[in-house]
Nucleic acid binder design. Structure first.
Length: 838
RNA sequence: GCGAGCGUGGCGGAAUUGGCAGACGCGCUGGGUUUAGGUCCCAGUGGCCCCAACGGGCCGUGGGAGUUCAAGUCUCCCCGCUCGCACCA
């Protein structure tokens, strides 16, 4: 059905012709698009080349905010433009629907988390339709749907079979506000990424995904994907690869005890004058026994939060407290006994939890040595970048560690070697003598996925006293959440449920209990882009052939806040699933676009700040086309938008003008008129802008593309004043509608249909006719010594002599040429001519 | 401290990659039409200066130097802002 007929039927007003009235046309058209499943990808969809366009699915915390409006407006312009340029676009949508806010709502207001979540989803879905975003609703999914999380659980079991799931003890991050453990990635500056509470350390047994197995590949494959460099850098830093050696230090005195350290600077080993253990190191506990001072120290350390432990605030940088232990270590290279300490600047979960301390070459060791009056031994003579010797170091007067290049001294056989050469030689020698091995180390930790929460996918494991942890058999999936959880209890409602966890062991049949933790919601979002390929398939998670045909995702759009968390986890999933035979691609997201934020008066918008501007209020006043246009006209997609600087009324004014020009000048029956020159000028302006705007679209510069369209409407008004009418004007108006359709889908659809009877969204992208741009004459800027002194019009094919003659004839130019002799003339055809005069 | 990015009118932002700085829009000023209008149309709008006017000159892209016939764009130094990392041995 015609959209104009539909609008007329749905609006009581009969006359909508004269005035641009988005509030009359948009809701009717949005409803029609939804009823018609207008944007579903099916056999009737035009387009040849496959393109998987994905936008990060939202969490349904309430209605859409401006950030959503920005990301979806950018994404939809991209998608609609691709469709018009012959692509077959997969453009799915869903919700990341598990998470703590639903539980908090349940606890505070007694709401059912499922109800609360689904209500919010319906609200967001209605807003998305109202804003005209062309998502394929046949793909719709929600991660809290058992039909979805059944396969989340299946993936868990697949990873288990692949040996990529661990259950292990450890000191874990505990967020007291969320009452759950967190992954390392969810701790930002010692605080919970969600609630901002200070994170505590707790010893717990938890489930982990062994993402560290893929550390090297996760670094290497960054080379092959087209992502912003800063995001790649953030991932590289997070994974934190370093090269060095593990070296064994014997404990001095009787006994066979040995301790392995990890160091990136084995070349400095002759400067290792003491030794430090993390306070939690098992050998320390064994050796110190129930020493009271030590017990007190460990107790004090454990009370410190990570914030205190890692604080970089204040003048004295880090507090270098430590405790002298009751034994010494032996430096294997010098044979010397060196004192051993426990200090919390050494972390149990990096390297081996113990270090050789080299005060001369490591700032932390230097500070500790100064604080505890320990030996600082100079083992390196600094050199500059060219290898020239600089002033030697003086242990008594130096004020900080030296970390630059140099030549080894006081280092036995290695004296005189460059530091990097010494490093290689010492690693070789360590290996030859059986004292250690050269190694690569990563900062990345395994991904802790257990959460002591109830609105999430239950971990499909059963704990049996006899058999240990057993996987839930595949035919018993999904392990479904009970629908009668009590959210007023202390602790996890799922764990406190009276009956849910009691089951028989799948191995031996005896009474056993389910694991009552749920999976981190980042597990849900690590594979949703695969489920979109067949969201209703109840026989498998996704069809492999289809996944291989559509992946990797050609364009992923979303916020930079996921630079590490979500993007790293999803990459890991794809690699692990590939190795399990479920996929044939290495990376999920070939290209990534991080759109900027929408802020207000320089500050992030938030409910608590009370500075919220919502898409709904903009749409209610100006309509969706104006809001979308305003966002895209503001700046490039990557840049932040300060809404205080924006004026939707400007965009509204221009769209009104587009409407009016179409109504007043665009009718079929208007006869052709205007001089050849004026018609040619209009057509040249139009085709020039088609070419320019097309390239802007290709580069996702929607702001300048819109500027080109505005230039066309300016040219139309000028041509109209010059007496041009009929076909040339209609061509120009059509061009604006076609170029504008991806950004403002409502107004363009209505106006196009009136003149052509079909939908603008089914048209091919316009092609600029470059031959129309060729003019007989060109205007050249005339410079004298690089300064503009005039302008001349010459034949387009004029040679240098003709150009010089014409340029020299200009009065003002002649005035400046008279000041000296022309030494050189530079002629850039079509642009300028520059006389060099001396 | 380390790494990356960015500094252009009153504002958001343009500038074929070295070739007329300020496209397009907002705002502002003046004029016109209609006038109940916050509508619509036209003109102007970086700063300083010369001219009755037409015109014209000088300066100008955070600051300073350099390369070039020509620099917002390339090179070096400095200043400022934003983001990321930061006891990772």
């Amino acid at each position: 059905p015609s959209c104009n007929a539909r609008i007329a039927a749905m609006t009581a007003a009969t006359e909508i012709d004269d005035r641009y009235d988005p509030l009359a046309i948009e809701p009717a058209l949005a409803q029609q698009w939804y009823d018609d499943r207008r944007w579903d990808l099916d056999d009737t969809t035009r387009g040849r080349e496959r393109f998987y366009a994905l936008t990060m699915f939202p969490y349904p915390s309430g209605d859409l905010h401006m950030g959503h409006a920005e990301i979806f407006s950018i994404h939809d312009a991209l998608v609609r433009h691709l469709r018009m340029t012959g692509h077959r676009v997969l453009n799915p949508f869903g919700w990341d629907a598990f998470g703590l806010p639903a539980e908090n709502a349940a606890r505070k207001r007694g709401a059912d988390p499922a109800r609360w979540t689904l209500d919010n989803i319906e609200e967001q879905a209605a807003s998305i339709r109202r804003l005209g975003y062309s998502f394929d609703w046949s793909t719709r999914l929600e991660t809290c749907d058992p039909a979805y999380y059944r396969w989340t659980q299946w993936i868990f079991l697949e990873l288990l079979r692949a040996g990529l799931v661990d259950r292990k003890d450890g000191l874990v991050n505990w967020c007291p506000g969320c009452e759950t453990v967190l992954a390392n990635e969810q701790v930002i500056d010692g605080r919970c990424e969600r609630s901002d509470d200070v994170v505590e350390r707790k010893p717990l047994t938890q489930w982990y995904f062994r993402i560290t197995e893929y550390a090297q590949e996760l670094i290497d494959d960054l080379e092959s994907i087209d992502w912003p460099e800063r995001v790649k850098t953030m991932q590289r830093n997070w994974i934190g690869r370093s090269e060095g050696a593990e070296i064994t230090f014997p404990v001095a005195g009787p006994g066979q005890d040995e301790v392995v350290v990890y160091t990136t600077r084995p070349d400095t080993i002759f400067g290792a004058t003491y030794f430090v253990f993390a306070p939690e190191h098992p050998l320390v506990a064994a050796r110190m026994g129930d020493d009271e001072e030590f017990a007190a120290y460990v107790e004090e350390v454990s009370r410190r939060s990570d914030i205190e432990r890692q604080s970089t605030m204040g003048e004295g940088r880090r507090d270098k407290r430590g405790l002298r232990l009751n034994f010494d270590m032996v430096n294997p290279f010098t044979g010397e006994q060196i004192p051993a300490f426990a200090a919390d600047y050494v972390l149990m979960d990096y390297g081996t939890g113990a270090i050789m301390a080299v005060p001369v070459g490591d700032q932390r060791d230097f500070e500790f040595a100064r604080a505890h009056d320990l030996d600082i031994r100079v083992i390196i003579h600094p050199t500059d970048d060219d290898g020239e010797l600089l002033e030697p170091l003086d242990a008594d007067t130096m004020s900080e560690a030296y970390v630059g290049p140099g030549v080894m001294v006081n280092s036995g056989d290695y004296d005189g070697l460059e530091w990097d050469e010494a490093k290689a030689r010492i690693i070789d020698d360590v290996e030859d003598r059986g004292w250690g091995v050269g190694t690569v180390n990563y900062r990345l930790r395994d991904w802790l996925i257990s959460r002591q929460r109830s609105w999430g996918a239950p971990i499909p494991m059963i704990h049996c006293d006899t058999c240990g942890p057993c996987p839930v058999p595949a035919d018993q999936l999904p392990v479904q959440l009970p629908d009668d959880l009590d959210f007023q209890v202390n602790g996890s409602p799922l764990a406190m449920h009276p009956t849910w966890k009691h089951v028989d062991c799948p191995e031996c049949g005896r009474a056993a209990v389910r694991d009552t933790d749920t999976m981190d919601t980042f597990v849900d979002s690590s594979w949703y882009f695969l489920r979109y390929l067949a969201p209703n398939d109840d026989t498998r998670a996704w069809p492999i052939d289809k996944a291989n045909a559509w992946l990797p995702i050609d364009q992923y759009t979303g916020g930079v806040e996921h630079a590490i968390l979500h993007l790293l986890y999803a990459r890991f999933f794809v690699k692990a699933l590939r190795d399990r035979g479920h996929l044939a691609v290495d990376e999920p997201f070939q290209a990534l676009l991080n759109q900027g934020q929408v802020i207000l008066d320089g500050a992030a918008m938030s409910k608590s700040r009370g500075n919220l501007v919502t898409p709904t209020e903009i749409v209610d006043e100006y309509g969706a086309d104006t809001m979308r246009g305003t966002i895209l006209f503001a700046s490039a997609p990557e840049d932040d938008i300060d809404w205080a600087d924006m004026s939707p009324s400007g965009m509204y004014k221009w769209l009104s003008r587009v409407w009016r020009l179409n109504v007043e000048l665009g009718a079929d029956e208007v006869e052709d008129a205007g001089s050849d020159a004026d018609v040619a000028a209009l057509r040249r302006a139009v085709h020039e802008r088609i070419i320019a705007a097309s390239s802007d679209y290709d580069n996702r510069k929607y702001n300048t593309a819109l500027a080109k369209m505005m230039e066309i409407t300016n040219a139309i008004m000028e041509a109209d004043r010059a007496g041009v009418a009929g076909a040339p004007i209609r061509e120009a108006l059509d061009t604006v509608l076609l170029l504008l359709a991806p950004i403002c889908p409502f107004i363009t659809d209505v106006l196009w249909e009136r003149r052509h009877g079909d939908s603008v969204h089914d048209q091919d992208w316009p092609v600029g006719d470059a031959t129309l741009l060729v003019a007989e004459t060109v205007d050249l800027v005339v410079q004298v010594n690089g300064k503009v002194r005039g302008e001349v019009t010459v034949a387009a094919d004029a040679d240098q002599a003709a150009v010089e003659a014409a340029a020299g004839a200009d009065d003002n130019v002649a005035r400046f040429l008279a000041d000296g002799t022309v030494r050189r003339v530079i002629h850039v055809p079509g642009r300028l001519v520059n006389f060099v005069v001396a």
